[in-house]
Computed example of a mutant assay.
Amino acid sequence: MSINLHGRSVLTLDDLSPDEIRFLLRLAADLKQAKLAGTEQPRLSRKNIALIFEKDSTRTRSGFEVAAYDQGAHVTYIGPSGSHIGHKETMKDTARVLGRIYDAIEYRGFAQSSVEDLAKFAGVPVYNGLTNEAHPTQVLADFMTMREFTHKHLSDMVMAFVGDGRDNVALSLATGAAKVGMDFRVVSPRELWPAPDVIENLAAEARKNGGVFSIGEHIRPGVLRADFVYTDVWLSMGEDEAAWPDRIRLLSPYCVTTDVMTATENPYAKFMHCLPAFHDRNTDVGARIFQRFGLDCMEVTDEVFESKTSIVFDQAENRMHTIKALLVATMGG
């Protein structure tokens, strides 16, 4: 089957079919091998990409910049205070300007409607580097990493997300897992479950592709036989500090500990996290959380984070390789 993604935008994983997801993962693996072997061929010479960051970033920015440079493209970084977006100019007008100058646009920010406006009016491929609703490039890297750490096909894997069930990464993982037919479980306090229609749609998509989507409150049955246990931060960028006590109260029982990993009853189970992670007190936020709540970690213990089960830095590296695949597939000759 021929796959052609040229000129396409990726705003959520709903923009990709199961075959297109698998194609991008194969391409990413080939590009990674070529980079390691020193045989990579640039396919994006003379291309220019605008990188809009309304939220700060480490992995997304680094991934897009290095992927572009490796492939011969140039990038312009537009930071939170580096443009008129939202202050003097609408996203619609910004899109019509940048689309005449650049060959593609990446957006990392808050509202999904912002990246949708870019895609609607720019006339060039637009990539969602993270919004409040979705994080598709993260999930592509996660799936690539999962394939590297097990002999199983994606459709044979079991993944459990432990934490906030409405989290943008959790929902993006659930969407991707449903498309590739995975057994995907969300383990979350009921107060943080997605809306019923979202749960129904995910379950229906999973059934259509031979997979399973389930959601529950109890950790032990949720992680049993999981190949991968995934979590994300409890306190996202821009989170109102007034909400911290309630969120910490709800999510404290869902910290990924050694006992959680043992509860998988799978000696080969791996721990995953999209990063950054609050696994100790060695950050400003970590120190403040300890001072206010007496917690020396939040969503994962340092013991698990630093263990041999943790593959979080493999995920971080693969952000660059899967982003590169996306750029090549949508912009390359």
Rank of each mutant, 00 (worst) to 15 (best):
M261V: 05
L251W: 07
H151D: 12
R249P: 07
G238T: 10
M144W: 11
T94I: 06
S236F: 02
V304E: 13
L224V: 09
D314S: 11
E54S: 14
R247C: 01
N209E: 04
A119W: 01
E106L: 14
I248L: 14
V126E: 00
V169N: 09
I323G: 04
F184D: 00
A37D: 15
G286W: 02
A170V: 02
D19Y: 02
C274D: 15
V180L: 13
G163C: 03
M331F: 04
L275M: 06
N168I: 01
S114C: 14
R26N: 14
L24W: 03
F121L: 01
S2K: 14
Q112M: 08
G176M: 11
Y77W: 13
L326C: 10
T322K: 10
A34D: 15
C274K: 12
A195P: 01
A160V: 03
I3Y: 04
T175A: 12
P276T: 05
A119S: 07
A73F: 04
G129P: 12
G238Q: 10
V126P: 00
G7P: 00
Q71H: 11
E299D: 01
P136I: 04
H74C: 08
D296F: 04
S114E: 15
V328E: 08
S307Y: 04
E317R: 10
W244E: 08
S45H: 11
E265D: 11
A34T: 12
L16Y: 11
F305G: 00
V223S: 01
R281G: 00
K208M: 01
P18I: 12
G163H: 03
T131A: 03
L154A: 03
L24F: 06
V180G: 13
A134D: 05
P125R: 11
D296A: 09
F143Q: 05
G109C: 00
D19H: 10
A203E: 15
A34S: 15
I219Y: 07
D197C: 00
S214Q: 09
A95F: 07
M182C: 06
R8G: 03
M91S: 08
M91Q: 08
N201I: 12
N209A: 06
D15Q: 09
H6I: 13
R292M: 13
F121I: 02
R220E: 15
E306W: 06
V66Q: 07
D156F: 03
R100C: 04
